[in-house]
Computed example of a mutant assay.
Amino acid sequence: MKFLLASSYVPFIKGGGTAIVEWLEAKLLEHGHEVETIFLPFVESMDNMFDQMLSYRLLDLSHSADRLVAFRPPAYLLRHPHKILWFIHHVRAFYDLWGTDYCGLRDTPKNRAFRQRLMEVDNVGLRESSQVFTNSEIVSSRLRTFNNVESEVLYPPVLDSARFYHQDYDPVIVCVCRMEHHKRQHLLVEAMRYTQSNARLVLAGKSHSGSYPRKLKLTVLKNRLQNKVEILDRWISEDEKSQLLANCAAAAYLPFDEDSYGYPSIEAQHAQKAVLTTTDSGGVLELVQDGVNGFVTEPDPKQIAAAIDRVVGTPGLAAQLGQQGPRRMNDLNINWDHVIRRLTA
């Protein structure tokens, strides 16, 4: 079967939104299908967002492949008679983040009108799709709430789970992801002020801008946490990531209302490491069960510190929680064979 994979991207930015497309291409090829992948630029700017969306809509790909699989907004506006969505998030500032501290937009008549028009345009592409999959229950819920569209959850695996392995349980908590305000590494830095164990924290990842890592470093200096916190604000290679996860006691991932469990969470679980997260982390809660394969606390530095001390300071607990990770992923059917079966059904 011939597949065309299409998604948007922000120029010069790599992340989970591009990885899911590239990894699906590799797996479809492994299963004997023909695949072409298209990434089209899209910047979430009110100045020209609808012009960009129109350019997507004008592309008729009807005769290019047997099936089109679309991912990030607004790739679902591309035209094809057998269009499948593996929908991973909305333009969130106008949907679930509207009215929150993470929105960045004022609630004005102009912005409300823009939001309404965006939803109307999105509904065109969403409702003409032959199948709609999502990457999490929370994204399926948002589609149902905002667009009245039903969908099936299809959890995205990592490309090569064998890359992640367990070696030791050193008293280190690692957080490997982009350093951005909504990923909330600041909660972890603040938590280290209150830890009583010998735990250390390693934050690793690249930022869209240098301002957030600078704030984190200033917090470390202000609170004299240099011996407890290490910040690696740069691109982390896959090999380095694997090594960090192999030797830590647990991984932490505390995003605000994440679209899915996030690759950092399942990478840690493949390495047999517990995941520390918070009650408002969104899709991460579909993977992490409190006291089973990690800990879930309120987004409060003192409560996070207590969880860190518990996993580091309780003999055998890190191993006990970590060993539940692969079982939990099996329960959720997080594997490529299942993904390919559903997309080719």
Rank of each mutant, 00 (worst) to 15 (best):
M49L: 15
V21F: 03
S151W: 03
L187Q: 09
F295N: 02
D239Y: 06
S64F: 12
Q185S: 03
D101I: 09
S151C: 08
A6F: 13
Y261D: 05
A318C: 04
E30G: 07
L28K: 00
H31P: 12
E238G: 04
E137F: 09
R127K: 15
Q269I: 12
E258W: 04
K217F: 10
L68H: 01
I236L: 09
P171V: 13
R341S: 13
K228W: 07
D107Q: 11
L61I: 12
D170M: 13
K228Q: 13
L28G: 00
A345Y: 15
P299V: 03
P156G: 02
M119P: 02
K183M: 05
I304C: 10
H89K: 08
P213N: 05
F50Y: 12
L126T: 01
Q116P: 03
R328P: 02
L201F: 07
N48F: 12
G322S: 13
A19F: 06
P41S: 12
D107F: 10
P213W: 03
D122L: 00
V288C: 09
A250M: 04
S242Y: 02
V91N: 10
T100S: 11
Y155K: 03
W235T: 13
R328I: 13
W86G: 00
K27W: 14
A268V: 11
L201H: 07
Y169D: 03
Q243L: 14
L40Q: 15
G99V: 14
C177H: 07
R142Y: 12
R115E: 09
V176R: 01
V10Y: 06
L218D: 09
D170S: 13
R106W: 14
Y169A: 02
A204S: 13
D66G: 06
L188I: 09
A93Y: 07
E22F: 05
H80E: 15
D160A: 14
S242G: 14
P156T: 06
D47E: 15
L54M: 11
D66P: 03
D257N: 15
Y9K: 05
D233A: 12
K27N: 15
G325T: 02
L97R: 06
K215E: 15
N223K: 04
S161P: 06
M49R: 03
T277S: 11
I266C: 02
Y194D: 04
T277A: 11
K110C: 08
Q320M: 11
I266M: 08
E34W: 06
N247W: 11
H186W: 13
N111E: 11
